[in-house]
């Protein structure tokens, strides 16, 4: 990956050094989260965080550990069903925010007759299909192109744990070890601990294993890695301790 985490720490309203932005002969510059373009040619951060750039995609964004999740198209989230209408479920993606809609037919193999019956409080792993400022977000539990669930759908059993949004992003990186300095899951797997996990970008992680004790230990290990910002070595030590306890 060409993405680089610079050591530049930016504050809202800072003047960005043009040299810190990527330049590409043909592609237009893409602004990611936390940056704002003020015409004609000023780019300022709107949040405090680390400035990241991707030369190949000609993109620049600010990596920050914000508190509230704002839905973005394509994100995988863990949503809680609140109520159901004629052909849609209303699901909560982040607390005290407008409910997202989830069509009852957007599950794998769902037809008018065989659609899932989800009651209040059920959890689903879903993808955000529409998200913008002025409308409620929309979710789906099936891939539009293949018609398969691809891991999405209702989550039964297990337990959800709250994590920070930054941690959720780190867990979902394509290579968490190299890019996010996160080895806890790999180490736990390496120690022979069997578990299922689903990470929601809305700061939730669902863990299931064959014992209650194991699920609690894994969930708490992830939370501890997040809250105490554990280094790679400390994560290895923690994983060993957890594996011994289970």
């Amino acid at each position: 990956m060409a993405s680089t985490r610079t050591s530049t720490f930016v504050l809202p309203g800072d003047r960005l050094d043009p040299a810190s932005l990527p330049s590409h002969p043909t592609l237009p510059l893409k602004l990611g989260p936390g940056l704002r373009h003020i015409p004609p040619n000023t780019i300022t951060p709107t949040v405090a965080g680390q400035l990241c750039t991707d030369k190949r995609k000609n993109a620049v964004w600010v990596e920050f550990n914000g508190g509230r999740y704002i839905p973005t198209t394509g994100d995988l989230v863990i949503a809680t069903i609140q109520n159901s209408a004629v052909d849609i479920f209303y699901a909560s993606v982040s607390d005290y925010a407008p409910k997202a809609t989830l069509p009852q037919l957007s599950f794998e193999g769902a037809t008018k007759k065989t659609r899932p019956q989800l009651s209040f409080g059920a959890l689903v792993y879903a993808r955000v299909t529409h998200a913008n400022k002025h409308m409620d977000p929309e979710l789906e539990c099936v891939s539009q192109s293949t018609g398969k669930s691809e891991g999405l759908g209702p989550l039964t059993g297990g337990m959800v744990f709250d994590i920070s949004l930054g941690m959720a992003r780190r867990l979902m990186l394509p290579k968490p070890v190299e890019q996010g300095a996160l080895v806890i899951l790999d180490e736990l797997g390496g120690q022979g601990v069997a578990f299922e996990i689903a990470v929601g970008r809305n700061g939730k992680v669902w863990v299931n294993s064959n014992s209650v004790k194991g699920t609690i230990a894994i969930g708490r290990a992830i939370q501890e890695t997040d809250e105490k910002a554990l280094k790679i070595e400390e994560q290895r030590k923690l994983a060993k301790k957890v594996a011994r306890e289970i």
Partner: peptide, 28 residues
């Protein structure tokens, strides 16, 4: 006034199972 966020079904069931095994969610 928004309603208080209530725990999900999974959390309720898991908490019950954990109590039956003498465990608390934060390991205390």
């Amino acid at each position: 006034m928004p309603r208080e966020v209530e725990p999900s079904v999974n959390e309720r069931q898991f908490f019950e199972k954990a109590l039956a095994e003498n465990l608390r969610l934060d390991g205390r």
